[in-house]
Nucleic acid binder design. Structure first.
Lengths: 118, 118
DNA sequence: TCTACATTTCGAGAAGTATAGAATCATATA
DNA sequence: TATATGATTCTATACTTCTCGAAATGTAGA
């Protein structure tokens, strides 16, 4: 059962996703992509919007992608990046599942201020 | 309006909180404290449970506290740490507020698997 | 095939984070 | 006041991540 393959346990995945978001540029990019919706944005436009050189942005996008928070798709010469909603859902579910263990009361107000609750 | 004081803008706070949680030991400790409820746990017990030297754990607890994710209170010689539910709420609200901008549909299933939704 | 263009990968120095032993601080009790 | 104990701060070293120019890769059109 040995393997050099990346593990998929929820804790490690959560640490990786949290680490990917724990960076000013990457958090901004992620939010940008979430706002952009299913069509996403092309790599160059993202780099330009964030005012960061393409090679630096490519590095950050790779980190977000490996963490399961964004997806990419090539369309001829352009590469579209979009938010990976399922990855986001997994991360939030992990944090929330956690937050409710033993103390359900604390979640009472947790979603109160959100518009998209329903 | 210059100041050496730490800023309070939501993005920086979110990056700091995400960074605090983006570490195996710290994420475990945070979950442990959430499970432990309002009484929290004593610093020494946390270090022991995580199998980490006291000085190392003190460092990690300081990071979590500065990020607004845990609170501490001294009771004679012991220091109790407990989860800061409000800080957790702020972080989740920031991430979710974000996740719904422009794409409310994506949030439809986001809370489906959680017991504490209501 | 040659050129242009979008993007990624490589490489190396700078910056930041992790770890844990030793020293220090705070509190309690004899 | 002296001693013990729980916890933090200091300090130094190891490790990881960040940044971005240069080089390489992939794609399209002349």
């Amino acid at each position: 059962m040995e393997s050099t393959m990346k593990e998929f346990n929820p804790q490690d995945s959560a640490v990786e996703a949290l680490g990917a978001l724990a960076h000013d540029t990457r958090l901004s990019v992620f939010r940008m992509l979430v706002k952009a919706g299913p069509d996403g944005l092309i790599a160059g436009a993202i780099a330009q919007a964030a005012n960061v050189p393409p090679s630096t942005m490519s590095h950050h996008l790779g980190i977000l992608e490996r963490a399961g928070l964004v997806e990419s798709e090539r369309e001829s010469r352009l590469i579209h990046y979009r938010a990976d909603y399922e990855g986001m859902r997994r991360l939030l579910a992990f944090l929330m599942e956690d937050c409710c263990q033993g103390v359900p009361e604390m979640c009472a107000d947790l979603f109160g201020e959100l518009d998209c609750k329903a």
